[in-house]
């Protein structure tokens, strides 16, 4: 029970300080789930993001479910997910009943602009850590550049980019084996 509560509070914290989509959550996940609680490694978070892109649902919730499942099975996944959605439930309820024009308030807009800058600074660190884990040699560097270009400059759905990268990974493995087999 104590561990489940810990899972809930950690993901509550991560939900409370995520502004924007699932990717903006990375710095919080790195701090809480990887560094502090050692629930997952950087490699695993990359894997969860990849699967989260191709499966239904919100990426932040998918990642929470994955990590929760890894620590404590189905119960763990439920507590992690409840944790990550709880702040939203409370905050949106308060704002939508009390402050109708919340998004237009000047204070809110200024604070958000500041927060966006913070997210940028935090993401620089997050992506450098991920880069070290994911990009190891020339083929993986090519996959990295290719997926960035496809995601940024074309309208190809993300799911296809992920699937293509998976095929590349498999083909690379196969090619490497053959080369070693010959030599």
């Amino acid at each position: 029970m104590k561990e489940l509560l810990q899972i809930y509070t950690a993901w509550f914290k991560m939900g409370l300080f995520t502004f924007g989509g699932g990717y903006a959550m990375l710095p919080m996940i790195q701090k809480e789930a990887i560094e502090k609680h050692h629930w997952a490694t950087e490699d695993e978070i990359l894997d969860y993001y990849a699967v989260g892109q191709c499966t239904p649902g919100i990426i932040a919730v998918n990642t929470a479910t994955f990590v929760g499942y890894k620590i404590k099975g189905i119960l763990g996944s439920i507590f992690a997910t409840l944790g990550v959605i709880s702040p939203s439930l409370i905050i949106i309820f308060l704002i939508s009943t009390l402050i109708k024009n919340f998004a237009e308030l000047e204070v809110v807009q200024h604070a958000l602009q500041g927060i966006q800058v913070a997210v940028c600074a935090l993401m620089v660190n997050a992506i450098m850590n991920l880069f070290k884990k994911g990009v190891k040699d020339i083929p993986t560097a090519l996959i990295f550049v290719g997926s960035f270009l496809l995601a940024h400059f074309t309208s190809i759905p993300t799911i296809f980019i992920v699937l293509l990268a998976g095929v590349c990974g498999y083909v690379l493995h196969f090619a490497k084996n053959r080369k070693e087999g010959v030599a």
């Binding site: 903006a24 990849a50 966006q116 993401m123 996959i143 960035f148 940024h152 293509l164 990974g169």
Partner: peptide, 27 residues
């Protein structure tokens, strides 16, 4: 294992793409 070896760098690319958009909006 080999499929995930391919997925990881791709996810880093996707995160970078999201980051560039966030940067453009904020800075």
């Amino acid at each position: 294992k080999s499929v995930f070896e391919g997925l990881r760098p791709a996810v880093v690319g996707l995160v970078l793409s999201a980051m560039v958009s966030i940067f453009a909006g904020a800075l």
